[in-house]
């Protein structure tokens, strides 16, 4: 699907596609390292599985369309999709679900629309939502960060769980998995605990959930690298984080017992990852400056609304997909004023 989204000024491009995607992959590394440290080998195995799947799918589609395979695999965009999907899903997800989600993302979300540059939706997030809606139980079984893990899993254990579904001797699923900080807050709030009481629990760190906050901070570092290298612009991340933080803080000030603080919202779940790596996808985001500000702010707002009053574990994927839908319309109404013309279009 092609939308008329290109706007002036037509600045000279800084990077080729594979350079952009390469920087994104590089900037993801600190966060991935942190995830590997806190959540074990499952993260790495998921990335390997997803990458192999997306490359195979892209090669197959190029074969079907009788086009050269090399340039498409070489632009690295499929790998970015694979990595984003793999770090969004729980580390112990059965292998075939990771494969299914990656194949869905590439085949039905990206290539069916015509490949890179033509997809209306962010493939990684569509793949994530596809899995979340289809397999809600497996998709919400997160393991606790290693600092508070009672039964640490070795590489071999992890491989067995992912590929054969066999748990280490003497352990049950409940002993391995644990609610994410967000799920915990939600369920405890329903049990009439106050937010400050929940924060006393062992799962809690300084900013958000223990371990989770550090993953967020390392992703933030990668995001700042992208900003510094001008791979992405600041409009979307800042407006997204800003609107989420402002809304959360507003409600937190109204009733601190019932509504978690702004910093909690920034450093749990996929907020930071989403702000810098997912919402800024050059294909599916808005392209005008005002459009990007509106796009980011709306995502932040939707994340807060869905997290607070919705039923799903995290809201970044849904918010991004909903705004992907709105992006062409936003672009249409936020075209910059052409020099010498009034805003309305007449001279």
């Amino acid at each position: 699907m092609q939308f008329p989204t290109r706007t002036s000024p037509y600045t000279a491009r800084l990077y080729r596609v594979n350079q952009t995607m390469g920087w994104v992959l590089l900037a993801l590394l600190p966060g991935i390292g942190a995830m590997w440290f806190y959540f074990g080998w499952g993260v790495v195995i998921n990335i390997a599985l997803a990458s192999a799947t997306v490359l195979a799918c892209e090669a197959w589609v190029m074969h079907l369309r009788k086009r050269p395979v090399g340039p498409v695999l070489g632009d690295l965009s499929a790998l970015v999709t694979a990595v984003l999907l793999a770090i969004s899903v729980p580390p112990l997800l059965p292998w075939w679900m990771t494969v299914l989600g990656s194949a869905f993302a590439i085949l039905l979300v990206k290539q069916v629309y015509g490949g890179l540059g033509y997809n209306a939706f962010n493939p990684a997030m569509a793949g994530y939502v596809f899995l979340l809606i289809s397999y809600p139980v497996e998709m919400t079984a997160w393991i606790p960060p290693s600092v508070i893990q009672e039964n640490p899993l070795t590489l071999l254990d992890t491989l067995r769980i992912i590929f054969f579904g066999t748990l280490p001797a003497g352990l049950s699923w409940d002993a391995i998995t644990m609610a994410t900080p967000q799920d915990l807050v939600r369920s405890e709030l329903e049990l009439k605990q106050t937010f400050s009481e929940i924060q006393q629990g062992p799962l809690w760190g300084g900013l958000g959930g223990r371990g989770w906050e550090w993953v967020g901070l390392w992703f933030l570092l990668g995001g700042l690298l992208l900003l510094y290298k001008r791979v992405i612009r600041w409009y979307i991340p800042l407006s997204m984080l800003g609107s989420l933080f402002l809304l959360a803080t507003l409600f937190h000030l109204i009733d601190p017992d019932l509504y978690p603080s702004g910093t909690f919202h920034l450093f749990t779940g996929a907020t930071i990852l989403g702000a810098f790596f997912i919402a800024t996808d050059p294909v599916t985001a808005c392209t005008t400056k005002r459009g990007q500000l509106l796009f980011g702010a709306s995502i932040g707002m939707l994340i807060y609304v869905i997290r607070t009053w919705g039923g799903y574990p995290d809201a970044v994927a849904f918010a991004v997909l909903l705004l992907n839908m709105a992006a062409p319309t936003i672009d249409h109404y936020t075209q910059p004023r052409v020099f010498g013309h009034q805003r309305k279009g007449e001279l």
Partner: peptide, 18 residues
């Protein structure tokens, strides 16, 4: 067999028709 829930939900109808 673990059902792919999405296929029964409305999005599955659109994707299936496609």
């Amino acid at each position: 067999y673990q059902g792919l829930l999405l296929a029964i939900l409305p999005p599955g109808a659109f994707i299936g028709l496609g």
